[in-house]
Design a protein around this nucleic acid. Structure first.
Length: 317
DNA sequence: AAGACGAAAGTGGTTGA
DNA sequence: TCAACAACTTTCGTCTT
């Protein structure tokens, strides 16, 4: 299922074959190359395989990382998209609608106009729906999210549309919020800042839409665990898997000591990574960690002080 | 000069009357 | 609806390497 996208133009049968091959390759992995543990977790929701023992992520984004394209009209969209309604439903009108003038009531022309008005409304909602889908795809692609998250986000959008929650709100805000929500639900959280960066609206609007949608759709989103951020932050900092495992260890201990209560998960993750990096000799500055995680050096310092003191970790430089 | 440290004031979100 | 509150940020001066 890896790197499927380059074969987009190829035949359907060929695609299927490739899918099977690479999936079989991943099935072969039986134990953790890191600690030798056999307790591997294959989480297709999170699109990764990881070791339950040491937390090593063996394969990330095992699902198709998605397209690099954007659709600019409905025909392009339906040709390329793998989410949403089938093509025939989408290309009934390519934007070249005919204008019918009103006749008097009872006349055939009057009925025709009325009918056309209805379809026009259908077209505009359809249009914005297609735009929303393409935005979800664009942003999910920029965030390197697997297709199942895109589909979940698209499904939520559809649901919101049925409940008429979109009217009067910006599509950008809603789609951004849905991506943020689904990432959390799937255990691969992105920071609000990361979502904002690839979105076309501000953080304020995203969080407003976020709260609104949670309330209106009655969605449950449990608070993100610091651990969920560790693999991504570590790889952004080019840190080894030992450090990643160590940082996760630190967080688990911190959680036991109730040092994580009421604290922002990202700050905890950042501090744990900072400590783990220093202890292993692969030092990263507070600034480097801060740039990647989006929390300030001050917060990293505060968490890092708390953690090292309470957990009695000696951080000697 | 760069990194780490920490005080103090400011910001935005949550909570409880 | 408003005020109190905790977590986090911004800013900035100081110390350390």
């Amino acid at each position: 299922m890896v790197a499927l996208k380059k074969d987009n133009e190829e035949g359907e049968d060929k695609k299927k074959g490739k899918e099977k091959d690479s999936a079989a390759g991943l099935q072969d992995i039986k134990e953790c190359p890191e600690c030798g543990s056999k307790s591997l977790v294959r989480d297709y929701n999170k699109a990764e395989i990881f070791c339950a023992n040491c937390g090593l992520v063996i394969a990330e984004n095992i699902v198709d990382p998605g397209p690099e394209w954007r659709a600019f009209d409905s025909e392009q969209m339906s040709r390329r998209a793998r989410v949403g309604a089938p093509m025939t439903y989408r290309i009934h009108d390519k934007g070249l609608s005919t204008i019918v003038t009103w006749g008097s009531p009872g006349q055939r022309q009057y009925k025709l106009k009325k009918w056309q008005q209805r379809t026009h409304i259908a077209n505009t909602t359809e249009r914005s729906f297609i735009f929303a889908l393409s935005e979800i795809d664009r942003m999910a692609c920029a965030l390197k999210l697997p297709v199942n998250i895109r589909e979940a986000a698209s499904m939520l959008y559809r649901k919101a549309m049925k409940k008429h929650l979109i009217r009067g709100r910006s599509i950008e805000g809603i789609t951004s919020a849905f991506l943020y929500i689904t990432c959390r639900q799937y255990g691969v959280p992105r920071t609000l800042e990361e979502v904002r960066e690839i979105s076309r609206v501000g953080q304020k609007e995203i969080s407003r839409a976020y709260r609104f949608l949670l309330r209106e759709l009655d969605l449950k989103v449990s608070p993100a665990s610091p651990i969920e951020f560790v693999p991504r932050f570590c790889s952004m900092l080019n840190l080894s898997s030992e450090i990643r495992a160590h940082a996760i260890e630190i967080i688990k201990k911190a959680a036991e000591a109730e040092l994580t209560n009421g604290r922002g998960p990202i700050g905890i993750a950042a501090a744990a990574i900072y400590i783990a990096a220093i202890l292993s000799g692969e030092h990263r500055t507070q600034k480097e960690v801060s740039d990647v995680t989006g929390v300030t050096e001050v917060t990293i310092r505060n968490r890092y002080k708390e953690l090292s003191e309470q957990l009695e970790i000696d951080v000697l430089l």
